[in-house]
């Protein structure tokens, strides 16, 4: 299948600052593709280039088989964009936001009305259609932004940090809607710095750090390739104790990563390692065994956590 989006040595510079540093990736029709990385990794800049609202500084980018520099308007006509910060038109009502957005795509009014009814239903905002945008909750605004992005029935939906700032309930509701879109065949491209979101939504993802891609694959493959099966988390009463214990713990397992408030011990047998740690008298205040996640992959690859 032809790729929907293809980047080769894609670069974005702002003056002397390199935000995206020569990355390659391919996104295929129907998949949910993620850019995972901490703030400032270059994810949003990449999304803006895909969305044809930020000129490419170097390398090549093809979106829907076209060149964003030459065919921006045609490409944008087939994309839906959910930006990181809601940019709903606060001078308009919920309904008018959908209507005028449809007009920007030059859709006939009757058709926009039909779709807007459906979309309000889809994002469960039908009863707020005549409300102004301002009083809506964060979750409602994000859902309306998604409805707005779907008004042109896009082939690709770009979502920049779709659930940042939402409460857990609103997040789960949003994930469920996105999952339904994916089932309907919409290609999802999203950025996130939440590893649980990446694991929930993405078929495939790239991990970005400082403008570069450091790993690529399905969430499961990434964990299998770069992390161990399990992780033992050790917490200590005081930072000094953790510091003192580090050398001892390192003799018990091949890979130990210290983070701000705990030590992460990478191992294929968590229970055995936990037992060894306890037997050795390291003096951890708490010992927790869990499965490895994308967070661990990022930590192992970059030495830092996603939240930093």
């Amino acid at each position: 299948m032809d790729p929907l989006i293809e980047a080769r040595a894609l670069t974005k510079r702002f003056g002397g600052f390199v935000a995206v540093d020569g990355i390659d990736f391919v996104i295929r029709p129907g998949e949910a593709f993620g850019f995972l990385g901490p703030n400032g990794a270059g994810k949003s800049s990449t999304m803006r280039m895909i969305g044809c609202v930020s000129p490419v500084s170097g390398g090549t980018l093809r979106v829907l088989g076209m060149d964003p520099a030459a065919d921006g308007a045609q490409i944008r006509a087939r994309l839906g964009v959910v930006p990181q910060e809601d940019n709903l038109d606060t001078e308009l009502t919920v309904w008018d936001n959908l209507m005028i957005y449809g007009r920007y795509f030059d859709l006939p009014r009757a058709e926009i009305r039909r779709r807007a009814e459906e979309l309000l239903e889809f994002v469960q905002l039908t009863d707020r259609r005549d409300s102004r945008v301002d009083p809506l909750s964060g979750g409602m605004k994000r859902r309306l932004t998604i409805a707005r992005a779907l008004i042109n029935e896009p082939e690709v939906l770009l979502l920049d940090e779709p659930t940042t700032g939402l409460d857990p309930q609103a997040r789960h509701m949003l994930w469920e809607r996105l999952y339904r879109l994916k089932q309907d065949g919409v290609t999802l491209v999203l950025t996130t710095h939440y590893m649980d979101e990446a694991e929930q939504l993405c078929d495939r993802l790239v991990i970005m750090d400082a403008g570069r891609i450091v790993a690529e694959g399905s969430p499961r493959d990434l964990v299998a390739t770069h992390a161990t099966r399990e992780v033992v988390e050790l917490r200590f009463g005081r930072a000094a104790e953790q510091h003192a214990a580090l050398a001892r713990v390192r003799t018990l397992a091949p890979r130990v990563e210290p983070v701000a408030d705990r030590l992460l011990v990478y191992t294929d047998d968590g229970d055995a390692t936990a037992a060894a740690v306890t037997a050795d008298g390291v003096g951890a205040a708490s010992v927790l065994v869990r499965r490895a996640s994308l967070e661990d992959v990022f930590l192992i690859l970059t030495g830092r956590t996603l939240e930093e």
């Binding site: 964009v81 940019n87 038109d89 957005y101 920007y104």
Partner: peptide, 14 residues
Amino acid sequence: YSHTYDAILATPLG
């Protein structure tokens, strides 16, 4: 401040 144009520029309008 309202980022009105950001949303509009994501559509075919330039």
